[in-house]
Simulated assay, not measured.
Amino acid sequence: MILFIFLFFIGYYSYKHKPNANSFREFILTSKETNSPSTSSPSTSQDLFKFFNKLLVGQPSVPEFKIDDYYCFNVVSFKDGTATYVGFLDKWYLWSKIEVIGSSGRGDRLFGRKKKGSATEMQVIEGLAYSDKEAAIKAKGKKDYHKAAKSFLSAAKQFKKVGDDSNLLEAANSLEALEKAASIYENSDRQSTRAARVYEILAEQYKKTNSTQHNLEKALKMHRKSAELFELDGDGRFLFSLTSQAELSAEIGYYEQAISLFDNIIILSANDSILSFKVKSHVFLQCLCIIALGDWVRLEKRFQQCIEEYPSFADSRECAFINKLIVSKNSCDPSGFATACKEYDQLTTLSSWQTHILLVAKKYLEVEDLR
């Protein structure tokens, strides 16, 4: 009798502490994040749009599975037959696993160090992408734009992982759908801040998608929309969106536009006790844009003005660097110009567009030197 009561108690306890499907998803995602050296750290942003941040840092997805209930425990099997897990007393345990064979003939584990680009892995990712896209379309039909936006962005990320032409096109289509969702938010008085955040996310995604001129133009448009909406709401993120817009304008080659934007950014930053330390960087980038236009007279005038108005710039490495460039230009010294660039780059790495501007300026200086 006592044994029966004991067994009944054990069975009841096991039944009450049987893990469910949600705990299995959490278990798999945690396992993947722990074992994958390439997984990014979670975003620290506390925006209302947290789910977008999770998608942006590459939160993994769980392959399709079925769960069988055996009263005291559950058994989960992936539908592709690659693994089976047993859930007992609030925990999950691996029961069996079939290794996936990649193109090199070596086994790639499903949730260990996966060999990027294996056929099975790409098929799973592509399937998840189409599933997200279908969920987005359904949500859009029900006018659940919050869910639709989330699913479209997830689909775009999955399609880009596959990487072939057709899937990159699907990714682009998903981003366009997300842009439409953002425009719907924009037209709602209560959702304008959310729309601004979505536009910022879109800008970053467009910049990552092959970085073609078309995509950079789209990213610039998204930054512009985001800045306008943040400013309209009096949101402090306006300055960050404006800065992204100015830097991307300079990268694309819209130097006058970037110079004008930096004028506003420098004034706003100088009047902010927390962001005033960024003034030297903004002045430096503005000076580079003026150099790109080849207007050295304008550069000297702006340079002297910033030294007088912004002490933090006057005492900076950026100021010393720009001064060396001006001196080299006035003395027609391409060697001194190159040395100044090299010394600065050793401590603060110049980006590709910044390097391009300085290389072009140096070539013009060399031509003048030959004359």
Score class of each variant (00 low, 15 high):
G336T: 03
E309M: 10
D315Y: 03
E309I: 10
S316L: 05
P311L: 09
E309R: 12
I322H: 00
N323Q: 13
E308P: 04
V327M: 07
I326K: 00
A320I: 02
D315V: 15
E318R: 04
P311N: 12
V327Y: 03
C319M: 08
N323K: 10
K324T: 02
D333F: 01
L325D: 02
E308M: 11
L325Y: 00
D315K: 09
F321E: 03
C319W: 00
L299N: 06
E318D: 11
N323L: 06
C319E: 09
I307Y: 05
S331M: 07
V327R: 04
R302F: 14
L299C: 11
E300M: 09
Q305Y: 14
I322R: 00
A314S: 13
R302G: 11
S328V: 01
A320L: 06
A314H: 01
Q305M: 13
C319Q: 09
F321W: 10
D333Y: 02
L299R: 02
C319I: 02
F313L: 06
N323W: 01
D333G: 03
G336D: 06
P334V: 06
F321V: 06
A320N: 09
K301V: 15
K324I: 00
S328D: 02
E318S: 10
A320P: 02
Q304H: 13
E318W: 00
G336C: 05
K301P: 07
E308F: 11
K329L: 07
N330H: 11
D333H: 01
A320E: 13
F303L: 14
L325V: 02
P334C: 08
F321R: 01
G336A: 10
I326S: 01
E308A: 15
K301F: 15
K329G: 06
K301H: 14
E318M: 05
E318T: 03
I326E: 01
C332A: 11
F313D: 07
K301Y: 15
D333R: 02
